[in-house]
Design a protein around this nucleic acid. Structure first.
Lengths: 203, 203
DNA sequence: TGACACTGAGACGGAATACGTCTTATCGTC
DNA sequence: GACGATAAGACGTATTCCGTCTCAGTGTCA
């Protein structure tokens, strides 16, 4: 914009671009954002942008979505990594995830201004990606307690439930509360053929 | 959108379209709004829209700006029409106008998201229109006190000052306060070669 | 019933914009 | 001075948007 070239550490530019995607989407909505908008907002030339994200707009938006998911699960992981039973892990995961979703201003804004796109991202088109990332992050934590296939199934269903209860909270049940979440996930632990208070069996 | 045809009174459709322009501009910004957006938002077909505003987008936006100005001055007039001296009229006009501008949510949102366009509308491109509308509304009220040419000049300068003090409030002077406004406009009354407490001379 | 006004839906061509690629010049680093 | 990375912007293509037009459906009034 002003010609100066600020010193840039590795990966910083990419982050700036992804943040620019975020703010541009808030400002204009997904459909109205152009590659130029993002380039200007991130202070990067269009050429550089295409160099960093070969494939253009679609790849760029995809990278942004993955980046947001990464941030979400990194934060989540920091809050649940030190649990010592499967029950604790799941209860914490569910309640922390719900709270994190509710505290996400960007998500709230996008839900308010572009419900269609966001809902699709959370329920139809984007769900496979969400479950994929969720699995990648959570499988290591569930591994000590469950065989891999069961772990993946459990993560899958928990992810779906968190999204559903975030989008349409139950009147009786507030999953942001860890105790409520604990009660809630008990049946799924039994479904996994495990005593609800087990410390886990290693595969 | 759903095919039904709601019963419409005369002029209602036009109002709906102008309101749609307003909300679309808030949502997407002036540059990103398309005629289709406005048509969908107002529940009117594109053909009808072009029939109502021959000339297309530019005429439509112009109509919207004039409409906003009309609403502004209609509200203003209701608050100042019963003053009995020129001093009262001007003091009330200035303070009410400042308060009305500050209370305008749409204006605040547009100023926040598209300062360039709005400032241009208030200071460069749009000012002639503002002064024209202000004159049309205010001249009848000033007529009892001043000859027509002086009235027009006075309205012109007051309009400019209101805009300036709205955009950049003085630290010492709050024109939203009617007494402060009264003090403020005194010099302009003297400039018009009239005692500040005159009840006016008919031309 | 039939003329009439009005509207929505959408086709159409031309203009404007956006996309993605590419070249060139510049800057910083080694 | 060679090299890599970047900004700026030209370029052709694809897409979107604009403004006009036609046509069919609907409500109104004689």
């Amino acid at each position: 914009m002003d010609g100066r070239r600020p010193p840039r550490e590795a990966g910083t530019t990419e982050l700036r671009v992804l943040e620019a995607v975020k703010s541009c989407c808030e400002r204009w909505g997904v459909d109205k954002v152009t590659v130029d908008d993002i380039a200007k907002a991130s202070g990067v030339s269009r050429a550089t942008l295409y160099r960093m994200f070969p494939g253009g707009k679609e790849v760029l938006f995809e990278a942004h979505r993955v980046h947001e998911l990464d941030r979400f699960f990194a934060t989540l992981l920091a809050e649940v990594h030190d649990t010592r039973t499967l029950e604790d892990l799941l209860a914490r995961t569910v309640s922390v995830a719900i709270r994190e979703l509710r505290a996400d201003d960007h998500l709230a804004r996008m839900l308010a201004t572009e419900p269609g796109a966001v809902l699709s991202e959370l329920t139809v088109d984007g769900l496979p990606r969400i479950i994929r990332v969720a699995t990648a992050y959570m499988v290591p934590l569930v591994d000590p307690y469950l065989p891999r296939p069961q772990a993946r199934d459990l993560i899958d269903v928990v992810a779906r439930l968190v999204i559903s209860y975030f989008l349409a909270p139950s009147a009786d049940l507030d999953l942001a509360d860890e105790d409520a979440a604990r009660q809630f996930i008990a049946p799924f632990l039994r479904f996994a053929n495990l005593p609800t208070t087990t410390t886990g069996v290693r595969t």
